[in-house]
Design a binder for these strands. Structure first.
Length: 937
RNA sequence: GCCGGGAUGGUGAAACUGGUAGACACGCAGGACUUAAAAUCCUGUGGCCCGAAACGGCUGUGCGGGUUCGAUUCCCGCUCCCGGUACCA
């Protein structure tokens, strides 16, 4: 028998591809082929390397890239590294190793692993975000954001110079910029402002602006923490308390793009789930903003509601404790209780407030407002279920038609007035009728209208009477764009006094300076602040010491892939025109509302400013599922006497459950038992030296739980081992075979032998005992050709719809059939090996070479993969069933008429026998296979 | 709570537009080769029933209904699981 030479040969082909740059893309000027741009969400190179979960998406993009190449496309399939980030910085704090060194080592390791899997990337496109040649352009884009404002009239971003020109000519007249405060100037008053005041005003409109936002401050560590570093209000490292304190921050005005980010989703080929996540995150809701005049005061209280149809059911107003008017609303009688409540709300962390959402709390302010329509007195309450940050920070409460208001009214015994008809069987004493259906009643001019019509009418009426206006609110907030950290892109800004100025483009890249210590400064500023010589400039101005957040570099990297070494521009316009947008992007759902929203935002800004030919970066996006690791537990009933270490143990028997490491599952039962006793002791459940003894002397293995693979859980399966043992091709195919790409699935190494066996079977069929390829020049039979074309069709269709898992069985069936027929015909196998190449590139290359080719299989184009091959037509085929006429779709190769097809079916040996002399009533055929056949009688 | 997705043998799963449910693989059982093992190959394998066997019958895609000549697929009502999100007015 032939000796299957894998994985031994893997390295050879990986070297070969590298040497000949097989997977390097061609620039538009060098190629007349159609383009295909496919990419993965690039990794952060962590210290622990890849586990078997990571490559899932990488293998999928690699298969489609190789397939497109064989199809004749100019393929760009790049890989890069998101190399700024916290772990390397934290490691630097602990060990003093420069993050650049750690990062470099990790990238080296990642690249080795990626190469080991036979993944073919375009070498000239590789990038890393921490490279100055890269972050130079990240800084450049930041400056573009800083130098832009959003014109809501034209619905696009424009240079600040346009704004200043308008201001000095017309003031704020005819101007509708997205901004923080609404400012108003005449041309004269604008020109009269000092330079500093003008700059301050402009900061209100820039797409990158300064704000004061709360950060996670940890006093004990003397540093600001990222959200991921805070667990349950304590720092992840050390477990010190964390408080929220406001700090000067850069923010990006992403909210200006809310509507365009929403609308853009419609044109994208993304999953509904993902689009929905982004929609929810943006959280657009339209309604009415209306003012309630306050009794005996000049001010009014502005509230926002999405249910203006229930206006006549208002029984009180609620304002957030942080509302600017909250304290001033308190009358003398209510002052003490009210202030105490406001104080208490302040001290409660956001987390605490969220934790007990079921708890109703609030206090009456003593003040009344007047209902804008009825003039009725409405009490004003202060309640922490109202969020200061959303809408106006004040709401109208309609207990009969809102759950929260209902609970609140119940708790404080406030009035509930029904204004929307609810079904008869609905008990409106037990709950609020919150459905947006039913007719309005007790509602003056709204009576009799259905909810949607009533909403509309109420808004129109409020606007007509000058009481309020239609308003759209977003849950979405502007994106905070600074980190008080070292290992990130320096922000290219200089402060003169407290006014920020852009660093001149000629001074980019602003290099990240060396620091003596990576430790936080203790003041909350980044370690950069400690470098006096860097921060202070000769003219007395100071540099910004914040750095950019992790998502800065990843928001535009797809643009850099096209032109990774351009030192003149961030990406060449001609190349961008040719390559964009990305045809397929594969990555995890964890980036659904972060990276994917930010990169859409940046792309839109660049598009508005004329730097990007497309408005949406990623046309088609697929979320690959995660590969999970198993967690094993042993479960046993034990006597509660001996487990007093556990809390809340019920009397009598109790069940304990202990997690045990994966490696242990393979061990002998008696060893496991011993080990369980050890674990019990380790967990101090058995301090009295009791020996494990379950009633039947045994324990129960619970069904395995699955969880993310992580080093700390110890359920990581390493791709290196898999590749060493079975070879990269087996591993690649097995990862695909495991199940649908999008699905979450546990890794189970057991099945891998099936895929391995298939590849060996192919090899053994084609080689003799002396490892020589034995192919014959015989003409293939009809059956062999049919099997081959079934395979080609299946592989094509599956890859086109990204269903890689169903292609693998097609290969197996084909191999089994060829084995059965002992088919070693050159004509058949030449094509079959090309089909196999995207999945098992190493084996395909080896056989290809043995067939006498001197160049890579991937430099070939395969006509059978091209569009015009196997074009199918359809006809409607009417049939009589039980006297009724139905029609069925008949699919057949182009150029073949119905009669010819039926003839062909009848000509089939077996079918001919069955069909002889009978009428064909129904026939459903796909090429090569009859799906359904109904005969008379 | 709300939004999205899902449930098919012992296991991972397939079935593309409603058309032979369970392809393919793992596992298991039996067999061939072998002194033996490994490797390789062959056969069987949803459940139940009849039968010496070939053949055959019934049943079966989470549960209950419906549409249809025909439903894993479409519709209505449930149960459970997974993911996202949450005092967003």
């Amino acid at each position: 028998m032939a000796k299957f030479p894998f994985p031994d040969k893997d390295k050879h082909w990986q070297q070969f591809w590298k040497q000949y740059a097989t997977f390097r893309h061609q620039n538009p000027s060098e190629s007349s082929k159609p383009k295909f741009f496919v990419m993965d969400m690039f990794p952060y190179p962590s210290g622990s390397g890849l586990h078997v979960g990571h490559p899932l998406g990488y293998i999928a993009t690699d298969i489609i890239a190789k397939y497109r190449k064989l199809q004749g496309y100019n393929v760009l399939h790049p890989m890069g590294f998101d190399s700024f980030g916290l772990p390397a910085e934290n490691y630097a704090i602990q060990t003093g190793t420069h993050p650049a060194i750690t990062t470099e080592n990790n990238i080296t390791r990642y690249k080795e692993q990626l190469e080991m899997l036979g993944l073919g990337y375009s070498d000239t496109a590789e990038l890393r975000t921490s490279n100055p040649e890269y972050y130079r352009w990240t800084q450049w884009i930041f400056l573009k954001l800083f130098d832009s404002w959003y014109d809501r009239k034209l619905n696009k971003a424009r240079p600040i110079s346009d704004l200043t020109a308008h201001l000095s000519q017309f003031g704020t007249q005819n101007l509708d910029p997205a901004g923080g405060e609404i400012l108003s100037f005449t041309a004269e008053s604008w020109k009269a402002l000092s330079e500093a005041d003008q700059q301050k005003a402009l900061l209100n409109y820039r797409l990158a602006y300064i704000s004061y936002a709360p950060v996670n401050w940890c006093e004990a560590l003397g540093t600001v923490l990222a959200n991921e570093e805070v667990k349950d209000g304590l720092s992840e490292r050390g477990g010190h308390p964390v408080t929220r304190i406001p700090m000067r921050q850069w923010s990006l005005r992403i909210t200006a793009y809310s509507d365009r980010l929403l609308e853009g989703l419609d044109s994208l080929d993304w999953s509904d789930a993902l689009k929905e996540m982004q929609r929810n995150w943006i959280g657009r809701s339209s309604g009415l903003e209306i003012s309630f005049p306050l009794e005996g005061r000049a001010e009014s209280l502005e509230i926002f509601t999405t249910r203006p149809d229930t206006l006549f059911g208002v029984s009180f107003l609620s304002v957030a404790p942080e509302h600017p008017l909250a304290a001033s609303l308190l009358t003398a009688v209510q002052k003490e209780a009210g202030l105490a409540y406001i104080e208490k709300s302040k001290s409660r962390s956001e987390r605490d407030r969220m934790a007990d959402t079921k708890q109703v709390s609030g206090v009456f302010s003593g003040t009344y407002a007047r209902h804008p329509f009825t003039g009725k007195e409405i009490p004003v309450w202060i309640a922490d279920y109202v969020l200061a940050g959303y809408g106006t920070g004040a709401v109208m409460a309609v207990p009969a038609h809102d759950d929260r208001d209902f609970l609140f009214a119940n708790h404080f015994g406030l009035e509930k007035k029904q204004v929307i008809q609810c079904p008869e069987n609905f008990d409106n004493h037990a709950a609020a009728w919150t459905e947006k259906s039913g007719k309005a009643l007790n509602s003056d001019f709204l009576n009799g209208l259905e909810v949607p019509a009533a909403i509309e009418k109420a808004i129109v009426e409020a606007e007509a009477r000058g009481l309020g206006k239609r308003k759209i609110n977003y849950r979405f907030r502007d994106a905070i764009f600074s980190r008080q950290r070292y290992w990130g892109e320096p922000i290219p800004i200089i402060f003169k006094g407290d006014i920020p100025y852009a660093l001149p483009e000629s001074e980019l890249p602003l290099l990240l300076p060396e620091v003596e210590s990576y430790k936080p400064t203790g003041t909350g500023e980044s370690p950069l602040a400690a470098i006096e010589s860097w921060v202070n400039l000769p003219d007395g101005s100071r540099r910004e010491t914040n750095t950019m957040p992790g998502w800065a570099g990843s928001s535009w990297y797809f643009l850099r892939y096209l032109d990774a070494h351009n030192s003149k521009s961030f990406s060449d316009a001609e190349k961008a025109q040719y390559w964009l947008n990305v045809d397929l992007y594969i990555g995890g759902t964890e980036h659904a509302v972060g990276h994917l929203l930010y990169s859409r935002f940046w792309t839109k800004v660049l598009y508005d400013l004329g730097h990007s030919p497309v408005e949406e970066p990623f046309q088609k996006l697929v979320n690959q599922g995660m590969i999970l690791g198993y967690r094993y537990y042993l479960e046993a009933d034990v006597d509660n006497k001996i487990i007093y270490g556990l809390k809340n143990v019920p009397s009598g028997k109790a069940t304990i459950k202990l997690e045990i490491p994966q490696a242990l599952m393979a061990e002998h039962a008696s060893f496991k038992k011993e080990r369980l006793s050890e674990l019990l002791e380790h967990h101090q459940l058995n301090p009295s030296g009791w020996k494990w003894e379950a009633p039947d002397g045994d324990f129960v293995e619970t069904p395995a739980y699955t969880d993310k693979m992580s080093k700390s859980i110890g359920n990581v399966v390493n791709p290196d081992d898999m590749c060493q043992h079975y070879g990269a091709d087996t591993f690649r195919m097995y990862e695909m075979f495991l199940g649908p790409l999008e699905q979450y699935k546990p890794w189970n190494t057991n099945g891998i032998t099936g895929v391995h066996g298939f590849l060996k079977k192919v090899w053994n069929l084609l080689h003799n005992e002396n490892d020589q390829l034995i192919l014959t020049q015989e003409a293939p039979t009809k059956e062999e050709l049919r099997l081959l074309h079934t395979l080609i069709k299946k592989v094509r269709e599956d890859i086109e719809r990204l269903s890689f898992n169903t292609s693998v069985p097609a290969f197996m069936v084909f191999a089994n059939e060829m084995h059965r027929l002992a088919c070693r015909k050159q004509e058949i196998w030449n094509s079959a090996i090309i089909c196999l190449a995207p999945y098992a590139p190493h084996i395909a290359e080896e056989i290809w070479k043995e067939m006498g080719h001197s160049t890579s299989i991937f430099t070939a184009t395969f006509p059978e993969f091209q569009a015009e091959y196997l074009v199918l037509d359809e006809i409607n085929y009417p049939v009589q069933i039980n006297g009724k006429t139905s029609s069925f779709t008949l699919t057949y190769p182009a150029g073949m008429d119905k009669n010819a097809l039926e003839e062909a079916v009848r000509a089939d040996e077996k079918l001919g026998e069955i069909l002889k002399g009978r009428e064909l009533k129904k026939l459903i055929v796909v090429p090569g296979r009859i799906v359904n056949l109904v005969l008379e009688g």
